[in-house]
Design a protein around this nucleic acid. Structure first.
Length: 968
RNA sequence: GCCGCUAUGGCGGAAUUGGUAGACGCGCUGGAUUCAAAAUCCAGUUCCUUCGGGAGUGUGGGUUCGAUUCCCACUGGCGGUACCA
């Protein structure tokens, strides 16, 4: 048997595939363990070395629990609907389903190359009709339910209809779009269409006009998390707010439960904080202000009712319904101008400038407490969608209100005395109330309660809780997504497509462009007309399929339900969920929402989908640049020349083929991206250095792939190279480099296949784990991978001697050898459970180093080591395990058991410190008492040297730990 | 601005409830082997040093016999979020 990693990888990967080694069954008496990876979107650029970090970690965990005797579910699939495939289709004419199939196959190949123990028989693909049939079914269920706040759960729409027929909205506490008040009689008189509109106000999947993030360039609506800094995350196009008729999911109904659920799960504090933030709960009061000369009231939400006496003006959002009613004749021009200005402002303008703007409506509100008349303004800093879209402005106690008041010359009345709280900002809810009648002298929290009670007693409002989270816009005017399972009748009443008619498949099309915000599906007229009904043409966002996929893996081929009851009762929930931190908020939150909805329906047994969450760190790579300068030759000619990054302006240069001159850097010079594959990373004077070698330039001229083609066009921009020579006499240019996220566009993605082909999958797996804690971001660097490779070979050589023959003996292991083994078992077992994989790799190295020193070749020690390393190095361990006589796969071989007795020592080495500084160590028997240790230590000759001429004030002895002499 | 994470040799990183800081690996230095190189093996490698020792875990303070670990204040880096009333 030879240490030939390529051969071992191929041999065992083929074996596992053929024998379906990783197939998981639902019928078993073993306990379950469910390890899930966030499934990838199969992009055209394939996997880079950043992706597998999480996959390897979860694979180790899966293999560990499998060996520990659990029935492990460890599946992988594809989040295959999405914009890039559609954009690619628009650009190239290749149908999204074709490019998706190609990319999916490539991803799977790459994952198989890593030796990941996925059960591919359970793989899912969100764009597969057999899958999205159930995505549509779930959304149909959401459409068919409303949220009963009294029962605190979703209930069928039919039960709402019964309630409305029986008693109207009386006694109804439901999550809703607009507050509605109806009697049973009124409801009874309604026609079908009117009733449908009423129900739409309550449905958990509902259609309404909402302000959405409209992206003109992509021709679609984007979710909040798809927008970054006022531009689309994908493609970086401008985004504006636009009112549109859209389908939404009523996530706000679940806000409180999504918050409460965070206490049940094992997520990092940081992640919980992000979710908390996103939901953004704030407690305050809804207050009605009368409007001078109007019948209507102005409702505002405030978290600081205690400051109501400091209200010197009101602000309503420019989009507020009352703007036109309130505006007086003489202010109309000013208001119209302002509205016009706001309409022209994009989200990006608003955020980047952050200036104080607004306009006076001419109307006045009346403060319910002191009857003061306060002017009503409109201003863009008040948002239509938060609270009531109107505020009472208290410039003395709010930064934005203060800036506004200063700009518009409005009075400021102090109502909170903060002198007792030095350093407190206006945001802190502390201080003593002044100038506020009955609240004077109260501390802020007390005053908030008092004011709220008074407001309620006066019938002027009520206690209210507000959430920052918005309902989830769930419509996309795009092709490559699940069609909404909705059809409209001739009265334009939406109906759910019956389960028997699912899935609603996409029509065949060859032009996927959206025009003027209309879905490309609008052009599929044959498809739209379905009998006497008209199909909905909006599709769902990418998050639709990924919200519930963890359930489908439990029972992927069930065609009678999204998941079978038996399957979900057995698998319950995900024990460990591993994925990138970029999905920490939206994806997790949305799938928690769907899970809670399904829980209300009694379809899943647990309240939360993911018990424990691990966010792997991002792996960055060097982005390197080659520098272009101008060679000004002695004859006055200018030649663009490639130079080292450290070549200074004015340096004399002699370039072969051009001649002598000196370097000029001007605006036409600069740096050009250099594909990482042509860059050599070396270490010079302990500093990392990136070089472009002459041989690599030659290679770039020869090679026939995208990076090389790009690089050739770049290199044509320079006439010649001002090479430097290294120690070996090879020509090179020094490059500059910075760290950045791996991406195809930056030409710095490293393909895991390349590493596996060179070092083997086991080495790649262990090296990625060895880089550091899995949850921390780190730069990719191959320096160090040789160390892991050397370790694996040394490990192998413990088993296999000269002549490639097994050299394991059946002799009794020594005490020392057993101690090494059991130290390792303890460490690896504990660290896998802590998800500390880097320290496991170190522990294997330490144990091997120790055993090699002991010249150990005992089966009783080495065989358990093979079982221990199996999760990390599945190929090599499988080979060794079979060679040692194992008949079934090592990946089902029992996890070695730790025995404390092998770690028991006769004596313990104590550090001896003087005033906390360790000076020497001494050995004492394990059972030595505090007194014995102190006496023997004092008697020690070396100790006496340190104690000479000093008074011992105190001796600290911690048995089994250390001794400290306090001297003075 | 707010929230979260983070800071340890030339580098990646390790260190149990506060108890020998720098495990393990890379790199580097020296040696063995070799015609030579690669590979492999052995030894050394935090810094300073007058070779006695001294300093040292982003900075400044504190608690403690003892602090990388706990507390307070600050600084840098990364991520999230953004006029949220």
């Amino acid at each position: 048997m030879k240490f030939d990693v390529q051969h071992l990888d191929q041999k065992w990967q083929a074996y596992w595939k053929e024998h379906k080694t990783y197939r998981t069954l639902n019928q078993t008496d073993k306990p379950k363990y469910y390890v899930l990876d966030m499934f990838p979107y199969p992009s055209g650029s394939g996997l880079h070395v950043g992706h597998p970090l999480g996959y390897i970690g979860s694979d180790i965990v899966a293999r560990y629990w499998r060996q520990a005797g659990y029935n492990v579910l460890h599946p992988m699939g594809f989040d295959a609907f999405g914009l890039p495939a559609e954009q690619y289709a628009i650009d190239t004419g290749v149908h999204p389903s074709e490019s998706t199939a190609v990319n999916t196959a490539r991803y799977r190949e790459q994952m198989e190359r890593l030796g990941l123990s996925f059960d591919w028989d359970r793989s899912v693909n969100t764009s597969d009709p057999n899958y999205f049939k159930w995505t549509q079914w779930i959304i149909g269920e959401v459409f068919d339910h409303w949220y009963d706040r009294t029962a605190d759960k979703a209930r069928p729409i039919a039960e709402l209809v019964e309630h409305l027929e029986r008693q109207g909205t009386d006694g109804l506490d439901a999550a809703q779009t607009e507050p509605l008040s109806l009697t049973a009689a009124e409801f009874a008189e309604m026609g079908e269409k009117q009733r449908s509109d009423v129900l739409m106000n309550y449905r958990l999947a509902f259609r309404s006009v909402s302000y959405v993030n409209w992206c003109e360039a992509l021709g679609t609506v984007l979710a909040n998390d798809e927008v970054k800094d006022g531009r689309s995350e994908r493609g970086n196009h401008p985004v504006e707010q636009r009112p549109m008729l859209q389908w939404s999911l009523r996530i706000t109904a679940y806000a409180e439960r999504l918050l409460a659920g965070l206490d049940e799960v094992d997520y990092s504090e940081g992640l919980k904080a992000q979710q908390l933030n996103w939901i953004g709960k704030s407690t305050g009061a809804l207050v009605h202000f009368d409007i001078k000369g109007h019948d209507g009231k102005l409702d505002i939400f405030t978290t600081r009712p205690d400051t109501i006496y400091g209200t010197t003006f009101m602000v309503i959002a420019p989009e507020h319904d009352l703007v036109h009613t309130l505006t007086t004749e003489d202010q109309r021009t000013i208001i119209d101008e302002y509205l016009d200005y706001v309409g022209r402002r994009s989200e990006l303008d608003r955020m980047s400038e952050n200036r104080v703007t607004g306009a006076f409506t001419g109307a006045y509100a009346i403060n319910p407490f002191n009857k003061a008349e306060v002017p009503i303004y409109i201003a863009e800093y008040v948002l239509k969608d938060y609270g009531t879209g109107a505020i009472m402005a208290v410039p003395s106690d709010d930064d934005r209100d203060k800036r506004f008041a200063q700009k518009f010359g409005i009075d400021i009345v102090d109502v909170v005395d903060k002198t007792d709280y030095p350093g407190a900002t206006l945001k802190d809810k502390v201080g003593r109330i002044i100038n506020s009648d009955f609240m004077n002298g109260m501390e802020v929290p007390e005053a908030i309660d008092a004011a709220t009670e008074r407001i309620e007693a006066m019938g002027r409002g009520e206690r209210q809780i507000n959430y920052r989270i918005r309902d989830l816009v769930f419509s996309r005017q795009r092709y490559w997504g699940e069609p909404w399972p909705i059809e409209y009748d001739e009265q334009d009443i939406p109906h759910r497509v019956p389960t028997a008619d699912l899935p609603v498949e996409l029509p065949e099309m060859d032009d996927f462009r959206a025009v003027n915000g209309a879905s490309p599906l609008e052009r599929a007229t044959d498809w739209i007309q379905h009998g006497d009904r008209r199909r909905e043409t909006d599709t769902m966002p990418a998050t639709a399929g990924s919200n519930w996929y963890y359930l489908r893996y439990m029972d992927p081929n069930n065609d009678g339900a999204f998941v079978g009851t038996d399957a979900v009762d057995y698998w319950q929930d995900v024990d460990l969920y591993v994925g990138g931190a970029e999905h920490a908020v939206s994806h997790i939150l949305y799938s928690r929402l769907i899970h809670k909805f399904l829980y209300d329906l009694g379809k899943v047994p647990t309240r939360e989908p993911y018990k424990k969450l691990l966010n792997q760190g991002m792996i960055g790579g060097p982005i390197s640049y080659i520098h272009l300068g101008i060679l000004l030759t002695d004859d006055g000619q200018r030649h663009p020349v490639w130079v080292s990054s450290d070549t200074a302006e004015g340096s004399p240069l002699e370039v072969p083929g051009i001649g002598k001159g000196h370097l000029v850097l001007d605006e036409s010079t600069g740096r050009r991206l250099t594909p990482l594959r042509f860059v050599t990373e070396t270490s010079v004077n302990n500093e990392s250095s990136f070089r472009l070698y002459h041989t690599d330039v030659e290679e770039a001229q020869r090679l026939d792939h995208q990076d090389a083609a790009y690089f050739r066009t770049i290199l044509q921009q320079g006439a010649a190279f001002a090479w430097s020579l290294d120690k070996e006499g090879r020509q090179y240019l020094e490059l500059s480099a910075e760290q950045g996220k791996m991406s195809k566009r930056k030409y710095n993605a490293v393909n895991p296949d390349d590493i596996c082909n060179r070092y083997g999958a086991d080495c790649f797996r262990m090296y990625e784990m060895f880089l550091g804690p899995i949850d921390q971001a780190k730069p990719w660097s191959v320096s160090g991978i040789d160390g892991v490779y050397r370790f694996l070979r040394r490990f192998w050589n413990m088993f296999v001697g000269d002549g490639d023959r097994l050299r394991v003996s059946d002799d009794e292991p020594s005490r020392e050898e057993l101690k090494v083994l059991h130290t390792l078992i303890k460490k690896v077992t504990e660290d896998i459970e802590k998800l500390s994989f880097n320290t496991c790799v170190s522990a294997f190295m330490v144990a091997s180093n120790d055993l090699i020193k002991l010249k150990c070749n005992k089966r009783a020690v080495l065989e358990p080591m093979v079982r221990l390393i199996a999760p990390f190095a599945p190929h090599l361990s499988e080979e060794l395990y079979r060679a040692l006589g194992g008949t079934e796969s090592v990946h089902y071989a029992a996890w070695p058991e730790f025995e404390e007795r092998h770690l028991v020592e006769d004596s313990i080495t104590y550090p001896i410190a003087f005033n906390g500084k360790t000076r020497l160590t001494l050995d004492f028997p394990v059972e030595a008492s505090r007194q014995d240790i102190e006496a023997s230590a004092r008697a020690d000759a070396q100790v006496q040297v340190y104690l000479e001429g000093k008074a011992v004030r105190k001796v600290i002895v911690v048995p089994k730990r250390m001794v400290n002499f306090v001297v003075g």
